[in-house]
């Protein structure tokens, strides 16, 4: 259950970001939830409610999209989305790769008014 610390980190990051846009109100936040972030979407929504209330923020809509596990092959350089049942480069079959996306939670965009 680390969704609460993720939620608090999201709100903290949003506060920093909103400081760059004075006089506006936060309306909507798009989040990317990594398939391998270990984050449960429903639990994150629940935790966000508390984290937002703490800041007295209301009426913020959260849109959450899954981010697949993005990898880059160390042998041939191909970029691919790893399937959770088979972690191999589809181009050359190598099992050596760097993970580039899908292990974290990202704030992709905010909508302000």
């Amino acid at each position: 259950m680390h969704e609460m610390s993720i939620a608090i980190n999201i709100v903290r990051t949003l506060k920093d970001e909103m400081a760059l846009h004075p006089g506006t109100t936060l309306k909507k936040v798009k989040l990317g939830i990594g398939e391998f972030s270990g984050v449960e979407v429903e639990s994150l929504r629940f935790s966000l409610e508390f984290a937002l209330a703490e800041e007295n923020w209301q009426g913020v809509e959260f849109e959450m999209a899954k981010t697949p596990l993005g990898a880059k092959c160390k042998e041939c350089g191909a970029r691919f989305n790893a399937d959770s049942s088979d972690f191999r480069c589809p181009k050359c079959g190598s099992d050596k790769f760097d993970i580039e996306a899908g292990q974290s939670v990202t704030i992709d965009s905010i909508t302000v008014e």
């Binding site: 999201i10 309306k27 989040l31 992709d108 302000v112």
Partner: peptide, 15 residues
């Protein structure tokens, strides 16, 4: 309404 792209890792402070 304006949408602003951020692309920020939530755990970037930890990282």
């Amino acid at each position: 309404m304006t949408e602003i792209k951020i692309q920020k890792n939530v755990l970037s402070k930890n990282d």
